[in-house]
């Protein structure tokens, strides 16, 4: 039943239509467990769309049709017995603009636990522990341990984005999807998030959409190049940038279009 065990995500012939417009064409790919995989390609090529297929948020729009098969950890997430609640618990998402909830730092981190756990499982001590663990994992504990009661939206953008990542961790996700997580941040913020990604890799499978080719090159182990809804190339990042297998990839990374 389960696919290659070291693949977190396997997509087979995924097609997606927004109404009549086909945004993904026969995307087939295997994303390895515990690595950082970046999705690159020119604007409108379907990076966000593909990413959003992995936690089935695209379906929120009524006019979207998807065909094909996407297996997460061996389970086809388009099977009828899949519960979206459980799926999204295991697949976290980080957005372009940091979107902390208008609550305290503490409440942001335990929000997922409160949503998913039974009331009696939410002992104060367990929550405290979860907050410390999650904030430590994203390198925020040191800065924020005395400010847990502060409003999350008053933090710096970089801290907000880290908090958004920390918010996912108490639910023990398998996969973290990031859609241009650094494009609202400055150079230092970007570096900090990249560093954080490195420290999270191994435990979590990270898929990151980026417009910044240098970032894809620096921060990812594998790289997927997409063009007009098709997956053109998927290989190790070094290989893709040094010896691209497809002339279209070569032209893109040389900056002829994009």
């Amino acid at each position: 039943m389960s696919a290659e065990p070291n693949y977190s995500i396997t997509a087979r012939d995924v097609n997606l239509w927004y109404g009549k417009f086909q945004a993904l064409r026969n995307v087939t790919t295997n994303i390895k467990h515990g690595l950082i995989t970046s999705l690159i390609g020119p604007s409108g090529c379907g990076k966000t769309t593909l990413l959003r297929c992995f936690n089935r948020v695209n379906e929120r729009y009524g006019y979207v049709t998807t065909t094909g098969e996407i297996r997460l950890l061996g389970k086809n997430i388009y099977d009828p017995d899949v519960s979206l609640i459980e799926l999204r618990k295991s697949v976290g998402m980080v957005f372009q603009r940091p979107n902390p909830l208008p609550l305290s730092v503490y409440e942001n981190v335990v929000f997922g636990l409160r949503v998913h756990a039974e009331a009696d499982a939410l002992r104060k001590s367990a929550l405290d522990e979860a907050v410390e663990k999650a904030l430590t994992e994203v390198n925020l504990w040191h800065d924020l341990k005395d400010r847990l009661g502060h409003k999350a939206i008053t933090l710096q953008l970089e801290q907000q984005q880290k908090l958004c990542i920390a918010r996912l961790l108490p639910l023990k996700p398998e996969i973290i999807l990031m859609d241009e997580p650094c494009s609202a941040l400055d150079v230092e913020g970007t570096a900090a998030i990249e560093e954080l990604m490195f420290s999270l890799k191994g435990r979590y499978t990270i898929v990151i959409v980026t417009h910044n080719m240098a970032q894809a090159r620096r921060a990812s182990d594998e790289c997927i190049f997409m063009l007009l809804g098709e997956m053109i190339e998927h290989s190790r990042t070094e290989d893709l940038f040094l010896t691209p297998g497809n002339p279209k990839t070569a032209e893109y990374i040389e900056g002829r279009y994009g």
């Binding site: 039943m1 389960s2 065990p5 977190s8 467990h33 997460l72 950890l73 061996g74 389970k75 997430i77 017995d81 899949v82 519960s83 459980e86 799926l87 295991s90 998913h116 039974e118 023990k172 398998e174």
Partner: peptide
């Protein structure tokens, strides 16, 4: 909740 338990992933729990 890990890959070893692949066949019971993401299905509805009583909760």
């Amino acid at each position: 909740m890990n890959s070893a338990a692949g066949h019971v992933l993401f299905v509805e729990t009583p909760a």
